[in-house]
Design a protein around this nucleic acid. Structure first.
Lengths: 211, 211
DNA sequence: GTCTATAACTAGATAGAC
DNA sequence: GTCTATCTAGTTATAGAC
């Protein structure tokens, strides 16, 4: 009950870490308890002292992953310098989301990668946390729109889904070292706020619009 | 050898359709041959007359899905009205990609959804088609940038990944009837070219930048 | 071509020793 | 708490009848 962890708590955490890592890499159904146990330096049967079933283990990994990214984005909003613009706020949220997803955390990336392939009842129990996280983003964007930092003639829900897609898809291709998270956030926010198009000059006959 | 399909070809196609649909819904590892067979009105053992293994079936589903979206985007570029701008070209590609992914095709959506969870050797053989599709997009974007339709001070590869992410992620949330593909393409291209930000007015003391 | 039957294997889960 | 041994169920794949 102090800050010391019991042996049980330590093992439990080791199992969860191993599960998050393996689920993220191989997906849910393709991951066996034998692999998780091996990654946690244990025998498969020993897992059942800590968890009732594979699904129970999955559920906890998913919940932890979603809570972590939720908290990271929430904190990014609380720690902004006073007088920050709405663009600053959104940029901070984007960076917090990406950082959690790509640098810190097998739990969050496991959640994002395998959510579409989990058993129905696990999904049903987990969905509240997902909805709460979506609501956090919704509030950030709506506030920006109401303050006229974002256009009013758009479907903000759709924008949110496209934005989350661009960010979440990075778990499928991101390789540490190649691109920095800063650069990714820069590009994402540039697209979101200003776009990367240039006003094409008035058409003249010499324009190469087809070639 | 005529336009008539042999009984074998018909069955084969039925199996592939069933496999694409089931893979898309449940993922690769979680899908059993028994389910695929049932969806194709067959017994599991009968599948082996047409395919050598589950992996072989998977591979063909993946390849078909990638070829279809590739062809759809390629055709979208060939059928543009003369004098189309680069924005028009990109917009057409976005729409073709989304349409294939969300309306026409279990094969393409299966490919996008399960690519991250397939066996290593299948992935290795399939990757060429993926790379070719990426190259098609790269060319479209580079051409636009060289013609000064897109800013030159950006990492176009990164933009491409963010764009594909925004589009591909839609397989995880899109529900037919709620949003039209037109609307999705509109929003995506608006973000890509112009952004949805409004220049925030010069800061004054009464601005509510924090609340 | 498709069926039925089944072989060979692997998974998740349980029980009892330590 | 963890291990070893094992049960049960379900999977891919094969074989031979029709």
């Amino acid at each position: 009950m102090t800050t010391e962890q019991s042996k049980s708590e330590i093992s439990r955490a080791r199992i969860l870490d191993a599960a998050a890592k393996t689920f993220r890499q191989k997906g849910y159904a393709a991951t066996t308890l034998i692999e998780i146990a091996r990654a946690a330096d244990m025998q498969a049967g020993s897992l059942y002292y800590h968890f009732g079933s594979k699904d129970e283990l999955l559920e906890e990994v998913l919940d932890i992953g979603m809570r972590r990214v939720h908290e990271a984005v929430e904190e990014s909003q609380e720690h902004l310098p006073p007088g920050s613009s709405h663009r600053d706020r959104i940029r901070a949220a984007v960076e917090a989301h990406l950082t959690t997803l790509l640098k810190l955390d097998d739990y969050t990336s496991a959640n994002i990668r395998i959510f579409g392939q989990i058993p129905e009842d696990v999904r049903r129990r987990h969905i509240r946390l997902r909805d709460a996280y979506a609501e956090l983003w919704r509030r950030i964007l709506v506030k920006a729109q109401k303050s006229r930092a974002l256009r009013s003639d758009i479907d903000l829900g759709l924008v949110r889904m496209l934005l989350m897609g661009a960010l979440n898809w990075s778990v499928e291709w991101y390789q540490p070292g190649r691109t920095s998270i800063q650069t990714m956030a820069d590009h994402m926010c540039l697209m979101l706020f200003s776009g990367i198009g240039i006003d094409e000059p008035a058409r003249s006959s010499e324009d190469e619009t087809v070639a």
